[in-house]
């Protein structure tokens, strides 16, 4: 059968019988066939908004798409003992559809190859994400927009990931929109880390001093967990924000620690002009977006309410703050979000 000689309308009808993962597999036949698949089925491909690479501890790799990532494009795993990988030497289909086997010694090469293949199909403008729970860091891939990395724990026979290794992991995608890191990194983060340029950074800081992270961060939202910090760091942060010496883009900052009585509230109140809203005038409520890795969109959640706030001296911008001896939260707010509270502040000013 000369498939390529069939009328285009017939080729389209045939391709309509294939699942997305099957179309991707057909693309392995030849470059020309891949172009044909892509051009005829473009109306399906262009609906793809996101692709997520999941790296699991057992060396399986899932590549998914869809609103809830329910559509599997590639499900890759190491071969069974008696299986020899022949067709592409490092990569083979184990079952029609989306199931493949790969040589784990060539993991980086395979993942890079598949990623480049998908980039060629779907283009660079969709959202590419990485989620890794594998003890080794995921291969560094270009054009990644978001990463969620669960670092290995030392007590499970793995070495801690070093700050340098983590930096290398982001080498090829230094301008990500969101990075979330769980677990402990060995050594201090680099002062010039690419992570500080991300819009949304959520990081676990056990063992790391937070000053270099906080004062180097240039994005919109920063969450630091299990941090070692002291009152002077928070005072310096608030002073810099109030005097417009930094954090111009910052909309949300949260820091928490497992230790007790880290934040000296009396000292904080002495050093910073903290305003208080009369409870009868309402309370600040905030919706702040954060990246939920279970869904392809930026989810929203209301998670902050407060009566206290600070004002930026230069332009009167306001930010609500919430604090306790073990945590501190800061959220710049808009008049639209908190109409009553905003009116009340205006009257006071």
């Amino acid at each position: 059968m000369q498939f390529l000689r069939l009328p285009r309308v017939v080729q389209k009808e045939i391709f309509d019988n294939f699942e997305l993962c099957e179309l991707l597999f057909l693309g392995f036949c030849s470059r020309r066939f891949r172009y044909l698949t892509r051009s005829i089925q473009n109306y399906r491909f262009k609906e793809i908004q996101n692709i997520k690479y999941e790296f699991f501890e057992d060396d399986s790799i899932f590549i998914r798409t869809g609103y809830t990532y329910s559509t599997i494009l590639f499900a890759m795993g190491p071969p069974l003992e008696d299986h020899v990988i022949i067709p592409m030497e490092v990569f083979d289909q184990s079952q029609w559809g989306s199931d493949y086997i790969y040589d784990i010694k060539m993991k980086t090469l395979v993942v890079e190859g598949v990623h480049e293949y998908l980039l060629a199909f779907f283009g660079p403008s969709i959202l590419y994400e990485i989620e890794s729970t594998h003890p080794q860091l995921a291969p560094s891939l270009r054009n990644i927009n978001a990463s969620y990395i669960q670092l290995p724990e030392r007590n499970r026979g793995n070495d801690l990931v070093t700050a340098k290794q983590l930096e290398i992991c982001f080498n090829r995608s230094p301008n990500q929109e969101s990075i979330r890191i769980e677990g402990t990194v060995h050594g201090n983060f680099f002062t010039s880390s690419v992570m500080y340029r991300t819009k949304y950074l959520s990081i676990c800081c056990a063992g790391n001093k937070i000053d270099s992270i906080l004062f180097s961060f240039t994005g919109r939202s920063l969450c630091i967990r299990e941090a070692f910090f002291d009152t002077s760091t928070i005072i310096r942060f608030l002073n810099e924000w109030k005097s417009h010496n930094g954090f111009q883009k910052l909309m949300f900052f949260s820091i928490s620690t497992c230790q007790e009585n880290v934040l000296d509230i009396r000292k904080l109140m002495e050093c910073i002009d903290i305003k208080r809203l009369n409870p009868s005038n309402g309370i600040f409520h905030f919706k702040r977006t954060y990246r939920d890795m279970s869904f392809c969109e930026w989810s929203q959640e209301r998670f902050l309410s407060s009566h206290e706030y600070v004002i930026r001296d230069v332009d009167g911008e306001q930010a609500a703050i919430v604090y306790s001896p073990s945590h501190f939260r800061f959220a710049v707010f808009s008049s639209v979000e908190n109409v009553n509270a905003f009116k009340s502040i205006k009257k006071m000013i």
């Binding site: 059968m1 000369q2 498939f3 390529l4 000689r5 017939v10 009808e13 045939i14 309509d16 019988n17 294939f18 099957e22 597999f25 057909l26 392995f28 036949c29 030849s30 470059r31 020309r32 066939f33 067709p87 289909q93 079952q95 029609w96």
Partner: peptide
């Protein structure tokens, strides 16, 4: 009939390697 023919042609691809598909569909190599 077009739907049915296309389904049969689509089913031919199941469980085939790229090399086998090239033969079935008459696809030249790169």
């Amino acid at each position: 009939l077009m739907d049915y023919c296309c389904r049969v042609i689509g089913d031919m691809a199941k469980d085939k390697t790229p090399e086998e598909l090239r033969i079935i569909y008459g696809i030249p190599t790169d």
